[in-house]
């Protein structure tokens, strides 16, 4: 167990958003948080990353309480949030520069990954000159450059076209295996969740609770492009029921 959130609750003014949410992530695991829009997924990530303080509950990273403390996890926010005044390469290298690395060295390190992310040729452009998908890839690459053991990705593939998405996903899964990266990621896309995750937490209700936890039988036993779990349709149905319990 590398990351654990214990009974997190959070309200905004008097509106309760998260109610007693507990999630866990093991080393090398890819775990997905599924839920409809506005349910509180981003809020949960803001708490895990330390940006927001929960009303109650704790966040434990490798046995250490990190509740409300930032800088321990690589967090890719839902918006790409590239700095418009920095060239793409400097955006990507920013996490290294913030850690005290010289600009030139940081650029060199960042440069190595541009091809993998199909970003070749964009290094010295400004973010305004990139397409939505390119920006998202740059943002994912920047998150990767943070270099922490756990990554939180908030809808990392949503702005990519089908072909790029498949290749960036596949690359990301390879990286995860190579460096024993553990990932928690958010999506609304049920099929995406079933395709690439090891486990799925389904959020539902107001305030949001964990409605269901689904074990997809280990992503490594499946092909990341086509390998849905055997009982794909049944799992899909089960998740849909969590989203909208009234309809069935």
């Amino acid at each position: 167990m590398i990351l654990r959130a214990e009974s997190i609750s959070k309200s905004f003014s008097d509106k309760k958003v998260l109610d007693d949410i507990s999630v866990s992530l093991s080393e090398g695991e890819l775990v997905c948080i599924l839920g409809v829009s506005g349910i509180g997924k981003t809020t949960l990530f803001n708490i895990l990353s330390g940006l927001l303080m929960p009303d109650s509950g704790r966040v434990i990273l490798k046995g250490e309480d990190i509740t409300g403390s930032t800088g321990h996890l690589s967090y890719m926010l839902q918006k790409d949030l590239l700095l418009e005044h920095k060239k793409v390469i400097d955006n990507v290298a920013l996490p290294l520069v913030l850690k005290g690395m010289g600009k030139k060295e940081a650029r060199q390190k960042a440069f190595e990954y541009f091809e993998k992310f199909s970003l070749t040729g964009t290094e010295y452009k400004y973010p305004a000159q990139l397409s939505g998908g390119m920006r998202q890839r740059a943002s994912l690459l920047r998150t990767y450059m943070c270099g922490d053991e756990v990554a939180l990705l908030d809808e990392p593939f949503s702005a990519l076209d089908v072909r790029t998405r498949d290749s960036v996903r596949k690359w990301y899964l390879d990286v995860m295996d190579n460096i024993r990266l553990s990932t928690l990621f958010i999506t609304h896309d049920i099929d995406e969740a079933l395709l690439i995750s090891d486990r799925i937490y389904v959020l539902g209700g107001t305030p949001a609770v964990i409605m269901d936890e689904i074990d997809t039988g280990g992503r490594k036993n499946r092909d990341p492009e086509t390998g849905y779990p055997e009982d794909h349709t049944k799992l899909r149905q089960r998740i849909l029921e969590c989203f909208d319990p009234a309809s069935t």
Binding site: L51, G71, L77, L94, V97, L98
Partner: peptide, 24 residues
């Protein structure tokens, strides 16, 4: 959110100022 991102990357106040606030 941009400031949040910088904080998530453990940037200090001065770093946030230099990399984000002043050029912004």
């Amino acid at each position: 959110d941009q400031i949040n991102l910088m904080r998530a990357m453990k940037a200090g106040k001065l770093q946030i100022f230099i990399h984000l606030k002043f050029p912004g």
